[in-house]
Simulated assay, not measured.
Amino acid sequence: MSLRDEFIKLLREDETFRMAVAGLLGLDSILNELKSLREDFKELVKLEKERLDENNKRWEENDKKWEMNEKRWMENDKKWEENFKRWEENDKKWEMNEKRWMENDKKWEENFKRWEENDKKWEMNEKRWMENDKKWEENFKRWEENDKKWEMNEKRWMENDKKWEENFKRWEENDKKWEMNEKRWMENDKKWEENFKRWEENDKKWDEAMKRFSRIELELGASVESQYSRYVWEDLRDELRARGEVVEQRVRNMDLDGVEIDLLVTTDRAAYVVEVKVRPTINDVGALLAKADVVREKLGKPIVPILTGSYIGSEVEAYAKGKGVRMYRY
């Protein structure tokens, strides 16, 4: 093997010999610098990868927070829908209440005082709703400001390589905003709980009012039935005397084979079946005719159905007269 071949072999196989030759030729500093640059480059690539991984994690966490925030908005919308339904039901109750007030003007001096207190409560409730609306307006403004901040943040991400320190600071600010947003959600949930409690109290008041209305209707119905029955009997008695009919019996609140009759008057010629209603309807006319059929079958006499009341509509009166029902209005 020649000296040349031996020299080339050593350069290929012996790294120490190769580095010595490179040093003699002035290449060792270049090789060391290249090695150092390669190591620095690897470190830079590693650092950049760590930064990108950390940034991706933050974006994933931010996306999850936005998803959770969207769910909360959907739940909040459902609560608003339920709240609107409750307002519609409440409006219907107020309409029904207004009709009842028209029928009981003389009975509610004490109730007027209670309604005045209720109106004050509604005024206070309205003020609270106005305050709630202001809070929602302020919340929307904050969301607009948050959107603007996100647009600015997007631009800053484009300058990512030069702005890492500033970006980390902004992430800390964003975390604080999420903490503040969480506190606001907790405050909003408390407001909803308070609102539901008020609805429960309102429902209890309505239940109590309905019970009182029912008691008044029963008492009023019994009183009116007794009074109107007496009026009908006095007028009918004069008519019977004028026609020469002899009264055989007069019975109030009679139960005839399971049929309840307000007033039954029988004479030697006919039987008079009286139905008492404050505001009779067409259905009441039909019920009276059915009772008249039962009495006719039971007593075997001609039947004269009589319907009495205070508020008798023209349609009801026309229908009753068409069916042969006599009308007494008081």
Rank of each mutant, 00 (worst) to 15 (best):
G23K: 15
G23P: 00
L24Y: 07
L24F: 10
L25N: 01
L25H: 01
L25A: 14
G26Q: 02
G26D: 03
G26A: 02
L27Y: 12
L27P: 00
L27S: 01
D28M: 03
D28L: 12
I30D: 07
I30H: 05
I30W: 06
I30Y: 07
I30E: 11
L31Y: 14
L31Q: 08
L31W: 08
L31E: 09
N32Y: 03
N32D: 14
E33W: 03
E33N: 08
E33S: 11
E33G: 08
L34V: 04
L34R: 10
L34K: 10
K35E: 13
K35N: 12
K35Y: 06
K35C: 02
K35W: 04
K35L: 11
S36P: 00
S36C: 00
L37N: 12
L37D: 08
L37R: 13
R38L: 05
R38Q: 11
R38W: 02
R38M: 03
E39Y: 02
E39I: 11
E39T: 12
E39Q: 12
E39A: 13
D40I: 02
D40T: 05
D40R: 14
F41S: 12
F41K: 11
F41D: 07
K42T: 05
K42D: 04
K42F: 04
K42M: 03
K42P: 00
E43V: 06
E43N: 11
E43K: 15
L44M: 09
V45I: 15
V45H: 04
V45T: 09
V45G: 00
K46M: 06
K46S: 11
K46H: 08
K46V: 09
K46D: 12
L47H: 05
L47Q: 12
L47C: 00
L47N: 11
L47T: 11
E48A: 13
K49Y: 07
E50N: 09
E50L: 13
R51H: 06
R51S: 01
R51Q: 07
R51D: 04
L52F: 09
L52C: 01
L52T: 09
D53P: 00
D53T: 10
N55T: 15
N55Q: 08
N56P: 00
N56M: 11
N56A: 13
K57H: 04
K57Q: 12
K57R: 13
K57W: 01
R58W: 06
R58I: 10
R58L: 10
W59L: 15
W59K: 14
W59M: 15
W59C: 06
W59I: 15
E60A: 09
E60V: 12
E60L: 10
E60T: 08
E61C: 01
E61P: 00
E61K: 10
E61A: 09
E61V: 05
E61F: 03
N62C: 04
D63W: 04
D63K: 13
K64N: 07
K64S: 08
K64R: 14
K64Q: 13
K65G: 01
W66D: 03
W66P: 00
W66Y: 08
W66A: 13
W66Q: 08
